[in-house]
Design a protein around this nucleic acid. Structure first.
Lengths: 150, 150
DNA sequence: CCCTTTTTGTTGTAAATGCAACATAAAAAT
DNA sequence: ATTTTTATGTTGCATTTACAACAAAAAGGG
């Protein structure tokens, strides 16, 4: 079977490092933009839901989110219906950054898709969604401390 | 234009964290497997060439490679034709890990491509190669300290 | 040939990262 | 109803990560 993981890793690293660099003016540290955009888009999302969306480590996310809260970009409120969950909301200050972040992300996305017809871009998106779906279970499984057998 | 960067990021993070977890038995720290496989496959590759292949930060790579050398997995030799370059070679000890790393990477790749026909997999690989090509210049540009205008 | 710029690699420093171990709430089992 | 297990989130600690600033070699310009 042909190899697809290497380019995926290289593309992700390249664009993440560009994004982090370009967001330093916004007082956003490494990784923070990832969380913030999603919280603006999905107000009230729980920490765990966000973690599963982004596929990041629990403890890393906890600290990044606490920092976003300290900086006044988001609030974290205990879910009264389930005291285990923290629901995340962006502040006005957080929402202000959203446009800037999206503009950068969209530009990178456009650059990535240079010379792609919209059909090709759509096809790529569909294939990637299938890949993401295929690996999700393994990620959860390993993150729970289990060992894959192969 | 449809969004492709988010799934790429999520897939990369998920599989990278799985790999790092599964390589702890091999005494390989976070990220090290990336460098080692490439050095085994391309003996004599320079540090900069490797950095451009993987799209990692220079200083991070320097430290990861020094550690691989200290652990006895690779050697770094000054290129006599160009004293600025360090050429990288794997030791026997390093080569021994290669099979194990590849077995894991191949398994993850297979998992990622579950329910893909070989035509679909091939298509995905082609599209990803184009994306990687599209973003490479921006990555180099920004890493050199330049600012993208958009 | 000399001077300037670029390239390659390292190190200081501050911060993010992630595994373990923990605490607490909720869910499941008996 | 009580006990056990699972889910959610935090913290300690050791490590990786990456921007700056640097050093030295090579390349380019005059």
């Amino acid at each position: 079977m042909v190899e697809v993981l290497r380019p995926i890793g290289a593309i992700a690293r390249a664009l993440d490092s560009i994004a982090n660099y370009e967001f330093k003016d916004l007082a956003l540290a490494k990784g923070q933009y990832l969380y913030l955009v999603r919280i603006v888009e999905q107000p009230g999302i729980t920490q765990t839901e966000l973690i599963n969306l982004l596929k990041v480590d629990r403890s890393t996310a906890a600290r990044a989110l606490r920092k976003l809260e300290t900086q006044g970009f988001i609030t974290r409120v205990l879910d009264s219906a389930n005291e285990k969950n923290k629901r995340l909301f962006s502040t006005n200050k957080g929402k202000e950054l959203y446009t800037t972040i999206r503009r950068e992300n969209d530009y990178s996305n456009q650059t990535a898709l240079t010379n792609f017809s919209s059909q090709e871009a759509q096809l790529l998106a569909t294939l990637l969604a299938r890949v993401e779906d295929n690996i999700s279970a393994d990620w959860s499984y390993v993150k729970k401390g289990n060992k894959r057998e192969y």
